[in-house]
Amino acid sequence: MLEVSGLRAGYGEVEVLREVDMDLGGGEIVAVLGSNGVGKTTLNNNLCGIYRPFAGSVRFAGEKITGRPAHKIVAAGLVQVPEGRRIFPNLTVHENLELGSYRRGRANRDSTLERVFTTFPRLRERMTQRAGTLSGGEQQMLAIGRGLMAEPVLLILDEPSLGLSPLLVEEMFALIGEISRQGIAILLVEQNVVQSLEIAHRAYILEQGRIVLSGTAGELLQNSDLKRAYLGI
């Protein structure tokens, strides 16, 4: 469904991603793991058309989407839940969700909204509240709910566990599994290696802008290099 080949990207003169190749099939949860500053968010924003890659190609659902503007990529069904949530603080929870279907999924807005409220009952309670007044966990739920409103084919989640309490992190990962079971492919961009590998089918390890390791989640959990680098054992 998503095929990335030879992707080079960065900011101005600075190259952050150096020849990234990866792919993702329908129904999969694929994790992109790495510590701060290795290029995870840069990768994500180049897939989504927020930035233009220097070189390489991104194909989504059989079509080349490299260099297309972000709104056209959303229209095709590739939707991201950005790092730092980026909800609209001055709009109500309800308006935030409505804008989730601004470009895509507008025809089914009411029924999707009902589904999102079933998944996140808390958001229904907070419906008329300004999004900026929500707690961090609620904002993360809203960001994911907003992403779901576009009826995504592939949902990119950028660090959904960032800034959440351990209990909420647990809940968040359970929820990602639930979204996946609804038939949505998921690209999970995370620092949280252990919990990500528990729910992902496959994973890529990103270091210094390069994929240094990839495989099924089971293989990677057994990999001694990975254990040493990320798990400290």
Partner: peptide, 23 residues
């Protein structure tokens, strides 16, 4: 209207607006 909501969204959160497909 969606246009009005999008205008208010862009006013405070441009990146978030791009992410939901607002031009």
């Amino acid at each position: 209207s969606d246009l009005g909501r999008a205008i208010r969204a862009v006013a405070k959160e441009r990146h978030g607006a791009r992410v939901v497909g607002i031009d």
